[in-house]
């Protein structure tokens, strides 16, 4: 079994506040790591350290070499003046992904008829779906999702649940932060309570 993501003795903090201390885990294909905790407990900070945006205070993060990952942050990375399609096209170019996956991904997320609308005209839930549609455009084995459920309606939750289920049955692994219970059938979920 390959380990997709592991942390050893990981300590992270903001300023001089220690948020997470001595965290160990190893994520194998099929695993879901569910990070829970109150607001400000360090869920987003932990994900930002795991993707390499910020350095940890101490300890190590190891991602399996050569394997790209997907990070959906709590911000959607959509420019308000560009259309949905333009936003995703540019993201594809910057990530070295062919753009022919965009149309089916938007279809699946129920955004196909909105693709030529400027992102500023979309609702919060629609923007969230657009951010999540990137998971389908490029298939990557490791997903790191920061509050993916926020703003999604029932239908959106169902689609996300399906996506996550397909991902873990197809040898993928997921790290996800959420206050809510995760949607979809997920066979192996480890919960870490922060704070």
């Amino acid at each position: 079994m390959t380990t997709l993501l592991s942390a050893t003795a990981l300590c992270i903090g903001r300023g001089d506040r220690r948020l997470v201390s001595d965290l160990h885990f190893a994520l194998q294909p099929g695993d879901v790591l569910h990070l829970r905790g109150r607001n400000g407990a360090g869920k987003s900070s932990l994900i930002e350290v795991l993707v390499g945006l910020r350095p940890p205070q101490s300890g190590q993060v190891h991602r399996s070499a050569g394997d790209a990952f997907h990070w959906v942050g709590h911000r959607n990375a959509l420019n308000p003046d560009l259309t949905l399609r333009e936003n995703l096209d540019c993201w594809c170019a910057l990530n070295g992904v062919p753009g022919d996956g965009i149309a089916p991904a938007l279809d699946r997320m129920g955004l196909a008829r909105l693709r030529l609308r400027p992102a500023r005209t979309l609702s919060a839930g629609q923007k969230r779906r657009a951010a999540l549609s990137r998971l389908l455009i490029a298939r990557r084995s490791l997903w790191l999702l920061d509050e993916p459920l926020s703003g999604l309606d029932g239908e959106g939750l169902a689609v996300l649940g399906q996506l996550m289920n397909e991902h873990v049955t197809g040898e993928g692994a997921i790290v996800v932060t959420s206050h809510q219970t995760l949607p979809g059938k997920l066979p192996r979920v480890t919960v870490i309570e922060l704070g």
Binding site: E48, L53, W71, G73, H74, R75, N76, A77, L78, N79, P80, W91, L94
Partner: peptide
């Protein structure tokens, strides 16, 4: 602010 920079 919209999260584009961090994605890049």
């Amino acid at each position: 602010e919209d999260g584009w920079l961090e994605q890049v």
